[in-house]
Amino acid sequence: GKDHGVAVSNNDDDAAVCSSVRASDCVTSFDLVKLAATPLITVPFRYLVVHQMIPPARLEEILRDFPAALLSTALANKKNVEERDVRATGQVKGAYAKLIADVKSPEFRAALGRKVGMDLSKSFTRVTLRGACQPKPCGGEGSIHVDHKEKAVSVLMYLNQDWPTGEEGAGGHLLLLKKPPRKGLDALGVDNVIAEVPSYGGDMVAVV
């Protein structure tokens, strides 16, 4: 895909790096300035939500190059698809390939690390992809997910351009919860929900 400019954080070191290399080598899939400006929420745990982390024009390019195998083959029925399995289809290209490269880039790792107060320079980056989600396997109380303790930071990026309204679009968004399910607790009740994140528009969620 054609780059529509370079988005970097307001850190002088990052700016120097991006000014000294080709634009295609810099982070162009998302807005690191917006990441730097978004407040980190620390109670009851550390997380942040960056709306339109992927700018609309860039999101359109990414969706243009979205691997068809994630929509129309057996891969689409899996909860999470490993990056290597998608690459094996030969369909990772253009703006979509650039998105994966940017997610794994030192620039993004450094910007995210500064925001959450962690050194991520030696952390391993695992990329999984999802093309579709059905209500039963990934929705409702039965699918509440608690991240593994060995994960430093979990990052979700939503590539849907929009979301259906009314009954057709009921649910589908990410809920951040104070406490995991347990007997006597309404895990999805109002008192236990910290935030609801729309699953579209290039939004990004990071949870420590």
Rank of each mutant, 00 (worst) to 15 (best):
G1K: 09
G1N: 07
G1R: 09
H4R: 11
A7H: 13
S9T: 14
D14H: 13
D14R: 15
C18D: 00
A23I: 07
V27G: 04
T28G: 10
T28P: 06
S29T: 10
L35N: 03
A37E: 14
T38A: 05
T38R: 05
L40N: 00
I41S: 04
T42N: 05
V43S: 07
P44L: 00
P44F: 02
R46V: 01
Y47Q: 00
Y47F: 14
L48Y: 00
V49C: 05
H51A: 06
Q52F: 00
M53E: 02
M53I: 06
I54A: 02
R58V: 14
L59T: 07
L59W: 01
E61T: 14
E61Y: 12
E61I: 04
L63V: 14
L63K: 15
D65H: 11
F66C: 03
F66D: 02
P67S: 04
P67Q: 08
A69M: 08
S72T: 14
A74P: 00
A76V: 04
A76I: 05
N80W: 13
E82F: 10
R84L: 11
A88G: 03
T89H: 10
T89C: 05
Q91A: 05
Q91S: 06
G94D: 07
A95Q: 10
Y96E: 07
L99E: 01
A101C: 05
K104G: 11
K104C: 12
S105G: 04
P106V: 06
E107M: 08
F108E: 02
F108S: 07
A111W: 06
L112C: 01
G113L: 02
D119G: 06
L120F: 03
T128Y: 01
L129E: 02
L129P: 00
R130P: 06
Q134T: 15
Q134D: 15
P135H: 05
K136D: 12
G139Y: 15
G142P: 03
I144M: 06
D147E: 09
H148A: 13
H148S: 11
K151W: 10
V153K: 02
V153F: 09
S154F: 08
L156Y: 11
L159Y: 01
N160I: 01
D162G: 05
W163M: 02
P164H: 00
T165G: 12
T165P: 04
G166E: 02
G166W: 04
E167P: 09
H173Q: 05
L175H: 06
K178Y: 08
P181S: 09
K183G: 04
G184Y: 08
G184S: 04
L185A: 05
N192Q: 09
A195G: 13
E196K: 14
E196P: 01
E196M: 13
E196W: 09
P198K: 12
S199D: 04
G202V: 13
D203V: 13
V205N: 01
V207Y: 02
V208F: 03
V208D: 07
